[in-house]
Amino acid sequence: MEGTVFTPSLEGIKHVKTPEGEMLTKPFLEVCKNILPVIEKFGAAMTLVKSDIGGNITRLESKYASNPTQFNFLYNMVKTEVETKTAKASSSCTNGLLWLTRAMDFLVELFRNLLEHKDWTMSQACSDSYSKTLKKWHGWLASSSFTL
C-alpha cells in the first residue's frame, strides 16, 4: 500500500500502542486525523461523517492538551471522567472516544465493502456499512437521517 491515501494511517497505527498494549492518546488521534482527507474525497455525502469525526478528535485533543502528561494514555481520560462522574455526559471525552471508535468501525466496513463489492453503488456500500456498525446505536431519527 505504499504511496496510497492510507499510507499515513497504516504507518501511524504502528505507534498507537506502547509495548505493554496501552493506547497512546496523541498517536491515536493522529491516525484518526489522517483519515479525514480520505473521507473528504467522497464529497458531500460524507460531510456529516467527517464533521462528526473531526469534532470528536478536537474534543479529545483539547483534553489531551490541557495536561499531556496526565492524558498521555486514552484510558486516563476515561478513568478521570469516571472518577468525576462526568463520563456519561454527551460532551465528555469518554462519549467522544466511544463515537470516534464507532465511526472508525463504520469506515473500515465501508472501505471493505468498496473493495469487495465493486459493483455496489456508494449508497449501497454506505447503507450496508451503516446497518452493520452504527445503526444499532442510533435511534430511529438518526437512522432515518442517515438514509436520506
Score class of each variant (00 low, 15 high):
residue 1 M to R: 10
residue 2 E to G: 11
residue 5 V to R: 11
residue 5 V to Y: 15
residue 8 P to R: 02
residue 8 P to C: 05
residue 9 S to M: 01
residue 11 E to K: 01
residue 14 K to V: 02
residue 16 V to C: 00
residue 17 K to R: 04
residue 18 T to A: 13
residue 19 P to W: 10
residue 19 P to T: 08
residue 23 M to W: 13
residue 24 L to A: 05
residue 25 T to D: 09
residue 26 K to C: 03
residue 26 K to P: 06
residue 27 P to R: 14
residue 27 P to W: 11
residue 27 P to S: 01
residue 28 F to G: 00
residue 28 F to M: 08
residue 29 L to H: 14
residue 30 E to W: 09
residue 30 E to K: 07
residue 31 V to T: 11
residue 32 C to W: 11
residue 33 K to L: 03
residue 34 N to W: 08
residue 37 P to D: 08
residue 37 P to K: 11
residue 37 P to Q: 14
residue 37 P to A: 06
residue 39 I to T: 06
residue 39 I to G: 08
residue 39 I to N: 00
residue 40 E to N: 09
residue 41 K to G: 09
residue 42 F to R: 03
residue 43 G to V: 00
residue 43 G to R: 00
residue 46 M to N: 05
residue 46 M to H: 07
residue 50 K to Y: 05
residue 50 K to N: 07
residue 52 D to W: 07
residue 52 D to M: 01
residue 53 I to V: 01
residue 53 I to D: 04
residue 54 G to H: 14
residue 55 G to P: 13
residue 58 T to K: 12
residue 59 R to N: 15
residue 60 L to V: 09
residue 60 L to C: 11
residue 62 S to R: 10
residue 62 S to L: 08
residue 63 K to D: 06
residue 63 K to C: 06
residue 64 Y to F: 07
residue 67 N to D: 15
residue 69 T to A: 11
residue 70 Q to K: 08
residue 71 F to D: 07
residue 71 F to G: 04
residue 72 N to F: 09
residue 73 F to L: 13
residue 73 F to Y: 07
residue 74 L to F: 00
residue 74 L to V: 11
residue 76 N to C: 04
residue 77 M to I: 15
residue 80 T to H: 14
residue 81 E to C: 09
residue 81 E to W: 11
residue 82 V to H: 03
residue 82 V to M: 15
residue 83 E to M: 12
residue 84 T to N: 15
residue 85 K to S: 13
residue 85 K to W: 04
residue 87 A to T: 08
residue 89 A to V: 04
residue 91 S to N: 14
residue 93 C to Y: 02
residue 93 C to F: 02
residue 94 T to R: 03
residue 94 T to K: 04
residue 94 T to P: 07
residue 95 N to A: 03
residue 96 G to K: 00
residue 97 L to R: 02
residue 97 L to F: 12
residue 98 L to P: 03
residue 98 L to V: 06
residue 98 L to F: 15
residue 100 L to C: 01
residue 100 L to M: 06
residue 101 T to L: 05
residue 101 T to C: 02
residue 101 T to N: 03
residue 102 R to E: 03
residue 102 R to F: 09
residue 104 M to G: 02
residue 105 D to Y: 11
residue 105 D to T: 04
residue 107 L to N: 14
residue 107 L to T: 10
residue 108 V to G: 07
residue 109 E to S: 11
residue 112 R to F: 04
residue 112 R to Q: 12
residue 112 R to D: 12
residue 113 N to L: 14
residue 113 N to K: 13
residue 114 L to I: 10
residue 114 L to Q: 10
residue 115 L to P: 06
residue 116 E to C: 09
residue 116 E to D: 15
residue 118 K to I: 08
residue 119 D to F: 13
residue 120 W to G: 14
residue 122 M to Y: 00
residue 124 Q to I: 07
residue 124 Q to L: 05
residue 126 C to H: 04
residue 127 S to A: 12
residue 127 S to M: 15
residue 127 S to T: 14
residue 132 K to S: 03
residue 133 T to N: 05
residue 133 T to H: 00
residue 134 L to W: 06
residue 134 L to Y: 01
residue 135 K to N: 09
residue 135 K to F: 01
residue 136 K to Q: 01
residue 137 W to S: 02
residue 138 H to I: 09
residue 139 G to K: 00
residue 141 L to P: 01
residue 142 A to T: 00
residue 143 S to K: 01
residue 143 S to N: 00
residue 143 S to D: 12
residue 143 S to G: 09
residue 144 S to L: 10
residue 144 S to I: 06
residue 147 T to A: 14
residue 148 L to T: 06
